[in-house]
């Protein structure tokens, strides 16, 4: 009969109105500043630099200023200057480090390509949710100090991925140590060293 469709429609909206008072499924709104969103683990935007320790972030950056990310970045929002000197990294090895490392977040498009090309697991995607600033230029150009975040933070935001990265790094470190040991053993076994210097043991 004419009008029954109207009544059905009215019933639907009435159900929504009443349901919004007792059924959370009918009122999914988060009141944002008070209630922070529960971001899924795979959520990612804007890169950050991983440092080994929280106490000395500048000293323990994993980044060795190889500049691959700078070259690969599609919108070219990364700018790196290599250091003149070397200093020991977390594993104690002497490495170049980035004297300047800035990311222009107004240009960055969160494509994650820098993360994928990094051979040192030193740049990862962050989970910044609110990145509004009060001015256009300085606050959006993130420096090395602002970008550096400890590995513990990485574990906090992407636990699965960070554990896997740690495992891989540990395996690499183990392999390097084994190789060094093997090289040392080979060195001690052969009293007269050949023309080859430190690198390139027979096992390699």
């Amino acid at each position: 009969m004419l009008g029954t469709g109207l009544l059905q429609g009215l019933a639907v909206t009435a159900k929504n109105l009443v349901g919004s008072f007792h059924d959370p499924a009918r009122l999914p709104t988060l009141e944002y500043p008070e209630v922070q969103p529960q971001l899924p683990e795979a959520y990612r935007n804007f890169p950050f630099l991983v440092s080994e320790s929280a106490e000395d972030p500048m000293g323990t950056l994993r980044c060795v200023a190889c500049q691959i990310c700078e070259k690969e970045c599609p919108p070219q929002c990364i700018y790196i200057e290599k250091s003149k000197d070397k200093k020991p990294d977390a594993a104690g090895k002497q490495q170049i480090f980035p004297a300047v490392f800035v990311i222009d977040t107004s240009v960055c498009m969160s494509c994650q390509i820098c993360v994928e090309v990094c051979p040192f697991e030193s740049i990862k995607m962050d989970q910044v949710f609110a990145i509004a600033t009060t001015e256009r230029f300085g606050s959006l150009l993130l420096t090395r100090e602002q970008l550096a975040k400890p590995n513990s933070y990485y574990h906090q935001i992407h636990p699965t991925e960070a554990a896997e990265v740690d495992r891989r790094l540990a395996a690499d470190r183990q392999a390097a140590e084994d190789k060094a040991k093997a090289a040392a053993a080979a060195k001690s076994a052969a009293p007269t060293p050949p023309a080859k210097p430190a690198t390139g043991g027979p096992a390699a």
Partner: peptide, 13 residues
């Protein structure tokens, strides 16, 4: 408020 509730959002608060 009522339109908001019917559309499953709280409305101005």
């Amino acid at each position: 408020k009522i339109l908001g509730r019917i559309q499953n959002r709280p409305g101005p608060n």
